[in-house]
Design a protein around this nucleic acid. Structure first.
Length: 422
DNA sequence: TCTGGGGTCCTAGGACCC
DNA sequence: TCTGGGGTCCTAGGACCC
C-alpha cells in the first residue's frame, strides 16, 4: 500500500502559519511577477476565484470580498516543505518526496503491525502540531488511487484527513464518484479523447479491456488504466540528478534593448551556475531563449533559442555566462518588445568526474574552482547579491519582476524572523 | 497596463554526416 | 531513367505534472 500525503492549499497554508488572523478567510498566492493566482483557500474559491486567473481580471472580486493576496515566496515555501518532509521521514521508512507539497510513503509491511488509518492519522497530527500545516492522506494499492484518496480526504470532513481505499468495493465506489479530469495522468487532451470515445468516469475507463486501451493510447494511458485497476506501475523514485535546470522570468516591463536583455541573461546564467554548484553538478550545454509578449496580438511576435555545448562540462559562472551571452547575441532581433528570457543548462553530470580539456591545465581548473568556492562562501555569508558579474547589472533593472505583497523570509533569513510583541 | 516557473517525455522535420 | 539506410543535432511544439 502507498500513502500520498498532500498539503492542503500549501502556499496559502504557509502564509497562514505566520498570519494566524487569516484562518477561515479567503487567501490567495500569486505567481511570479504578481501575474496569476497559483494557490487559493476554499474560502477564496467560494467567492469565485480560480487557480490560473490573472489577478488584474479578478481585482474587483478581490476588493469586494477583502481577499488577502500574497506574492509568491518560494524560499519560504521550500523551507516549510523541508520541515514537513523531515517529519514524514522520521515517521515512515520509505518516503518519496514527489513535489513541494506532496510525498508518497511506501507502507509495504506496515499493515502487519499497524492500523494504517490510525497510523497515518497520527503522522498527520504530528505534522499539524509541529508545523501548523494541514495535510490530507490517501492510502491505496497504487499511487494514482492514493492520490484519489487524498482528494476524498480533503473534500469530506468525515474521513478526519485520511481516506483508505483497500477493498474492491471501495475502489469501485471511488472510481464511480471521482471526476475523470482530476485523475492523475489525465490532462486536457486525454480527457477530450476519452469523452469522444464515450468514457465519462474513471470506472468506465478502468473497465475497458487492456486490448482496447492499447489500441487507443500509448504507454502513459496504459499505466493510468493499470493504476486505476489497483496494479501499481508508476515509478516516482527520486532521480538522483535532474536532467536540466531552468531559470527564466517574465519581465515586469517589456524590454527592447540588447543591453537590458544581457543583464537578465547574465543574472539567470549565474543563478543556474549557483544551482549546479549547490548540488555538486556540472552541465555540458547552455540554452538561451527570448520571447515577445504572446498576449499582445497588436505587436510583432518573436521567439527563438540558441545553445552552446562546452568542450569541458562546467559550473563556472563566468564560463556559462559568457556562452549564454554569445547565444543571446546570435538570436537578438532589434525592434521587438521582449517579455521573457531564460537560461536552461542540461547534460548534467557529477562534478567529481569531469573529463578535462586536453589543452587546459589542472592548475587553472583548480584555480577556477577555488574562485567559485570563494564566491559562494561570500554570498552565503553576506547575502546572495553581494558578489556578481558586472554584466548582470549594478542597479535595479527595468525587467525585474513585480512582487508587491511578498512575506518576509521568516524561516531562512535571520533579519526577517517573526517578532512577537508581548 | 497587468496573463508564472520548473520539470519530464515524446514526436517530427530539416540539415548534415557516412 | 534510375536516387538507400542509418545516424546525430537543432529547433519547435505537444502533452502531462506540480
Amino acid at each position: 500500500m502507498y500513502a500520498l500525503v498532500d498539503c492542503n492549499s500549501f502556499f496559502c497554508s504557509v502564509e497562514k502559519v505566520f498570519h494566524p488572523g487569516l484562518e477561515g478567510k479567503p487567501v490567495c498566492v500569486l505567481s511570479n511577477n504578481d501575474g496569476c493566482i497559483v494557490a487559493l483557500t476554499p474560502e477564496a474559491k467560494a467567492v469565485g476565484l480560480h487557480r490560473g486567473d490573472p489577478i488584474f481580471k479578478v481585482q474587483d472580486i478581490v476588493n469586494r470580498h477583502g481577499v488577502k493576496v500574497f506574492s509568491t515566496n518560494m524560499q519560504l515555501y521550500a523551507a516549510m516543505s523541508r520541515r514537513v518532509t523531515r517529519i514524514l521521514r522520521r515517521s515512515v521508512l520509505h518516503v518519496e518526496n514527489y513535489s513541494i507539497d506532496e510525498s508518497f510513503c511506501d507502507l509495504h509491511g506496515y499493515e502487519a503491525h499497524h492500523d494504517l488509518v490510525e497510523f497515518m492519522r497520527e503522522v498527520r497530527e504530528r505534522i499539524r502540531l509541529w508545523t501548523d500545516i494541514p495535510v490530507s492522506v490517501g492510502i491505496a494499492p497504487s499511487k494514482t488511487l492514493a492520490k484519489m484518496g487524498s482528494k476524498f480526504a480533503k473534500q469530506y470532513k468525515g474521513y478526519q484527513g485520511v481516506c483508505l481505499i483497500d477493498t474492491e468495493e471501495k475502489r469501485r465506489k471511488a472510481l464511480e464518484l471521482f471526476e475523470l479530469a482530476d485523475v492523475w495522468g489525465i490532462g486536457r487532451r486525454t480527457l477530450e479523447k476519452l469523452e469522444y470515445l464515450g468514457i465519462h468516469t474513471p470506472l468506465e475507463f478502468a473497465q475497458k479491456s487492456e486490448a482496447w486501451v492499447r489500441s487507443h493510447f500509448h504507454k502513459p494511458g496504459l499505466q493510468t488504466w493499470q493504476e486505476l485497476n489497483g496494479i501499481p506501475c508508476i515509478d516516482t523514485t527520486e532521480v538522483l540528478r535532474n536532467q536540466s535546470i531552468t531559470t527564466s522570468r517574465s519581465f515586469g516591463k517589456m524590454v527592447t534593448e540588447l543591453e537590458s536583455l544581457k543583464t537578465s541573461v547574465a543574472t539567470f546564467s549565474a543563478n543556474c551556475a549557483n544551482k549546479l554548484r549547490a548540488q555538486g553538478s556540472v552541465c555540458s550545454t547552455v540554452l538561451v531563449f527570448v520571447a515577445s509578449n504572446r498576449f499582445r496580438e497588436d505587436m510583432p511576435q518573436y521567439s527563438h533559442t540558441a545553445s552552446h555545448t562546452f568542450i569541458t562540462p562546467t559550473s563556472d559562472t563566468q564560463v556559462i555566462t559568457q556562452a549564454a551571452l554569445q547565444c543571446l547575441q546570435s538570436i537578438y532581433m532589434p525592434g521587438i518588445m521582449y517579455k521573457k528570457s531564460g537560461v536552461v543548462v542540461s547534460g548534467i553530470t557529477s562534478d567529481s568526474a569531469v573529463q578535462l580539456d586536453l589543452f587546459d591545465t589542472p592548475a587553472r581548473c583548480r584555480e577556477r574552482r577555488e574562485l567559485m568556492r570563494a564566491l559562494d562562501n561570500i554570498n552565503q555569508r553576506y547575502g546572495a547579491k553581494t558578489l556578481h558579474l558586472a554584466v548582470a547589472g549594478m542597479e535595479r533593472q527595468d525587467w525585474q519582476v513585480r512582487c508587491e505583497h511578498r512575506s518576509p523570509n521568516y524561516l531562512t533569513d535571520i533579519n526577517e524572523i517573526p517578532v512577537i510583541k508581548i
